[in-house]
Design a protein around this nucleic acid. Structure first.
Length: 671
DNA sequence: TGGGGTGATATTTTT
DNA sequence: TATCACCCCA
């Protein structure tokens, strides 16, 4: 066992007498604790790896954990260990218990977009298609699901007309999902949780499989996730959760940081260990972070410290407007990089909202500085990827109506929207899927012989491929599907210019390559590959491979869990951070404060906060106030710079910047 | 089916 | 103001 652990970390690793909550401050080595604990459980507590499960929220975290455990536990010792996201674990449970759950063999996972379409379809029948309303329904349904409330219960407890209506939509939505043999993301948690709650025997089986459970980023769990954890753990209480209530920034999408406090109630024997030594930042940065977060109420107090010395003061840069802000930040960055011989990859620019990145992108491009922008439309959401995936989904699960609708006429098969509507109505009255409906005899009454033939040619073809997919090699079959539908040709026909068509086809090829890799690594069936893809696994690896060269541009949310030597937090203004929509409530402000805390604690060596005195909002320039969070920092640790009042830069600095610029240009020329 | 005109909209987003 | 989704017309 590695010896350079601090006493707290060691204690957290070796404590197994009762449920354990590890309050891991930012940069306190929590991943290390979890991975070392897994190793310790195997090597010293005699728990075989196959009886241990570690759960995280993101694929990335799961992957990192897996590889780090792999480094400590060599070969066989790690065999059978479960390290996965909540959702992947849920999918695993559903797969194993598929019969008791009443699903057919190959379930489909619908993403948020598919679900929205489904809900829209349900509302449409009642003639009230409305973007906002659809979203409202989707949110409410999500809330019900996560609170483990069934449609029936929602219908019964509805007090208002509005609520009752949405409950009805919820009910239909669930019925449709079942009819498609499909689940949504929430189901991946709630279906297993409900199964465990209702079925003693199944629960026992899983409790016997998982003897020890570890949960990462515990502050981000929602109610159903906590239920699942509680059920799995049972009376044994062999549980370690790691979290930091100060880094809870996802309350707006259902995370319940109260689950941290709840733990103490539900497990009276709960042991709490705090990790307060920070291995990331200088003390100046930590003092500021501590002081800021100290203004939030706490169930558990904690105070970060480090042995890295005081470090540089925190810089506050004031500029006259938003454009100046970007220009000066970039100028300083270039200068700093030159003086410190640093790499662009060591810098991060963090902001509250994505739109704030735009000016920075502009200026970075202008200076030919490499940058990495996180966020934006994902590979996975691209139309071409969704098309191909819809084919694969339909092959795996012909009852997947949402896939059917997407591709029935892509590329064109003369199955237009009116045909699909008639088919849909027919399927509805017969209570079967679109696929099944198209092979029913009664259809001759609804569709003309010609259209019927078109539809049946399509379904027959899918059927054949589906049959072959059970025996043949998966990837060659996928390639065959893509070429035999003439997708490339269709792209070239439909895209405005040949370039976009080529780019899209390139994406399709990349997709196939990734599916191939997935297949080679784990020898999965097509069904398994498709559902894994839905869990975004593939996409993320793709992004990771691109690497993190260049300056990182990202939202404060996206920065959680990362660290950078040099951090710029831009737009430190009232109405931006805290965001204007969060300013009314105290809890809103508190979450914004945590967001600021997360940003500050990303920095290892140097932190710069910037704000503009005036900023363009919509069409007019409005003047801004510095963020209250700047005032909440220890003022003695701040150095102000720029025209807070109105003064020009000292000439030496101008010179330095000019010099840096010059060297930068030379740099560029050399390349 | 593609291009352009129109109108709505402007917090954070993973699985 | 800038962007984007959507719709209509050629």
């Amino acid at each position: 066992m590695s010896s350079n652990l601090n006493p707290r970390q060691r204690e957290a690793i070796e404590y197994i007498q009762s449920p354990l909550l590890v309050l891991a401050g930012a940069g306190s080595g929590k991943t290390r604790v979890i991975t070392q604990k897994i190793a310790w459980l195997v090597n010293h507590a005699g728990i075989p790896a196959r009886h241990i499960a570690a759960v995280t929220f993101t694929n990335k975290a799961a992957r990192e954990m897996k590889s780090r455990v792999g480094e400590i536990l060599k070969g066989k010792a790690a065999k059978g260990l479960t390290v996965s996201t909540f959702h992947t674990l849920g999918l695993q449970i559903i797969r194993r218990e598929i019969r008791s759950l009443g699903f057919k063999n190959n379930i489909t996972i619908l993403d948020a977009q598919d679900c929205e379409g489904l809900i829209k379809g349900i509302i449409d029948k009642g003639f009230t298609a409305d973007e906002e309303y659809t979203e409202q329904c989707q949110q409410q349904i999500g809330r019900w699901k996560n609170a483990m409330i069934l449609p029936k219960q929602a219908l019964e407890s509805a007090t208002e007309e509005q609520e009752f209506k949405i409950a009805q939509i919820y009910n239909q939505y669930e019925n449709q999902l079942r009819a498609f043999n499909a689940v949504d993301f929430d189901d991946l948690i709630t279906v297993p949780a409900r199964l465990f709650a209702d079925n003693e025997e199944v629960l026992e089986r899983w409790q016997n499989r998982i003897h020890y459970l570890l949960v990462d980023e515990y502050q981000d769990t929602n109610t159903s996730q906590y239920q699942l954890v509680k059920l799995l753990t049972g009376v044994r209480g062999a549980l370690t959760v790691v979290g930091d209530d100060d880094q809870s920034i996802y309350a707006w999408r259902g995370a319940e940081p109260e689950n941290l406090a709840l733990l103490a109630k539900d497990y009276p024997r709960l042991k709490v260990i705090k990790l307060e030594q920070n291995y990331r930042s200088s003390n100046r940065i930590l003092t500021a972070a501590n002081k800021l977060i100290g203004l939030n109420p706490h169930v558990f107090e904690k105070r970060l410290w480090s042995d890295k010395g005081m470090g540089d003061p925190i810089k506050v840069l004031v500029t006259k407007n938003g454009e100046e802000e970007a220009k000066q930040v970039i100028a300083q960055l270039i200068n700093h990089r030159f003086l410190n011989q640093a790499d662009y990859g060591e810098y991060a620019i963090l902001y509250r909202g994505n739109h704030q990145a735009r000016i920075f992108e502009h200026i970075l491009t202008h200076h030919k500085i490499p940058y990495y922008l996180s966020g934006g439309t994902s590979f996975f959401a691209r139309a071409e990827i969704k098309d191909i995936m819809a084919y694969l989904r339909l092959i795996v699960n012909p009852d997947d109506d949402s896939a059917f609708l997407r591709i029935a006429n892509v590329p064109r098969r003369e199955i237009g929207s009116s045909t699909l509507e008639k088919l849909g109505n027919y399927a509805n009255t017969r209570q079967v899927s679109l696929f099944d409906a198209s092979n029913e005899l009664g259809l001759t009454e609804v569709l003309s012989p010609r259209t019927l033939e078109n539809v049946q040619r399509f379904t027959l073809w899918i059927d054949k491929i589906a049959y072959r997919s059970t025996t043949e090699e998966v990837i060659p079959l996928v390639r065959e599907v893509i070429s035999s539908i003439g997708y490339e040709h269709w792209l070239k026909d439909t895209c405005k210019d040949i370039k976009t068509a080529e780019r899209r086809m390139e994406n399709v090829n990349r997709l196939v390559t990734w599916l191939e890799k997935l297949q080679e690594e784990e020898d999965k069936t097509l069904g398994e590959i498709v559902s894994h893809f839905a869990l975004m696994d593939v996409l993320e690896r793709q992004n990771e491979e691109k690497g993190n060269f260049g300056v990182a541009l990202m939202t404060l949310h996206a920065a959680k869990g990362l660290e950078f030597p040099y951090v710029y937090m831009i737009g430190m203004e009232e109405e931006l951070l805290p965001h204007r929509n969060s300013m009314e409530s105290e809890t809103g402000i508190q979450e914004e404060r945590r967001l600021t805390y997360v940003g500050i604690t990303r920095a290892q060596k140097h932190l710069t906060l910037t704000y503009a005195r005036r900023r363009k909002r919509y069409d007019e320039m409005i003047s801004c106030d510095p963020s209250r969070f700047i005032k909440e920092l220890p003022q003695e640790d701040l150095v102000w710079e720029g025209d807070r009042i109105k003064s020009d830069k000292p000439p030496e600095e101008k010179k330095a910047i000019a010099k840096a610029h010059l060297s930068h240009l030379k740099d560029m020329l050399r390349k």
